[in-house]
């Protein structure tokens, strides 16, 4: 066990972690500038997770939220277990070979989103009584008013909002990893996890697959919007 944790960390991991945390925060703020309806605040965490392993990913997530809480927005602080779990799960999925082609990356994003939704629910319920300071709490509040129980209201909100965000995150992280030179990737503990499968040339990372993956995300956005309209309208 301890050996398995240790092999996530070499010097390059330790150097990557601060940069990944800074990437999380910088991109999170950049998305705010663009006014997009996603957070994208865990791209760095997913990068560390797939290149170095689940434990390194979990550490990056936890520290990322801690530092975000200390330096920028204090309300980010209590969510560190969610960020840690995102890193851990992304690392595990990569270990199982789910970070090698666009459609597998979509699956990874989806699994990570479900995990994040499950972990964030008890924090939202126990610490904040279900209503947090984030914008998506308007949905939770509405569901509560319609007579749903607190747990189901919080869970359904996360299930509506998380997948789009996490799948986009995973896809961007995949694109970044594909853009890195082979030599750089080789210095991290788990370079084989991100090796693209398939024979000819780019193989699994070809454009057709990318467009299909983007299509899936668009469909999910539409589905979430549709569900929202149903919930809020009915």
């Amino acid at each position: 066990m301890l050996e398995k944790i240790k092999n996530n960390f070499n010097t390059q991991t330790w150097v990557l972690i601060p940069i990944a945390i800074a990437i999380n925060i910088a991109i999170g703020q950049l998305v705010l500038v663009l006014k997009l309806p996603v957070f994208l605040d865990s791209i760095g965490t997913v990068l560390v997770a797939v290149l170095c392993g689940p434990w390194a990913g979990a550490l990056t997530g936890a520290l990322s939220n801690t530092i975000w809480g200390i330096a920028i927005d204090p309300s980010a602080f209590p969510w560190w277990p969610v960020a840690a779990m995102i890193g851990y799960m992304a690392g595990r999925m990569a270990q199982w070979g789910f970070f090698k082609s666009w459609w597998k990356v979509v699956v990874t994003g989806f699994v990570v989103a479900i995990t994040a939704a499950i972990v964030s629910t008890p924090i939202a319920v126990y610490l904040f009584g279900g209503i947090t300071a984030s914008g998506s709490s308007f949905i939770t509040a509405y569901l509560l008013q319609t007579g749903q129980g607190i747990w189901s209201a919080v869970v359904s909100t996360s299930f509506l909002t998380e997948p789009v965000d996490k799948i986009t995150t995973a896809m961007l992280a995949f694109a970044i990893v594909q853009g890195l030179p082979r030599r750089t990737i080789g210095g991290y503990p788990k370079p084989e996890q991100v090796e693209v499968e398939g024979g000819e040339g780019e193989g699994g990372a070809n454009n057709t697959q990318m467009y299909i993956a983007i299509g899936v995300v668009v469909l999910l956005v539409l589905f979430a919007a549709f569900m929202l309209r149903n919930i809020l309208g009915g």
């Binding site: 390059q12 150097v15 990557l16 940069i19 800074a22 990437i23 910088a26 991109i27 950049l30 791209i43 961007l172 970044i176 853009g179 890195l180 750089t184 210095g187």
Partner: peptide, 13 residues
């Protein structure tokens, strides 16, 4: 995102 991330990852090694 591209220039930001690749620029910083180049420093890692």
């Amino acid at each position: 995102i591209g220039p930001l991330v690749f620029g910083s990852l180049a420093e890692v090694e």
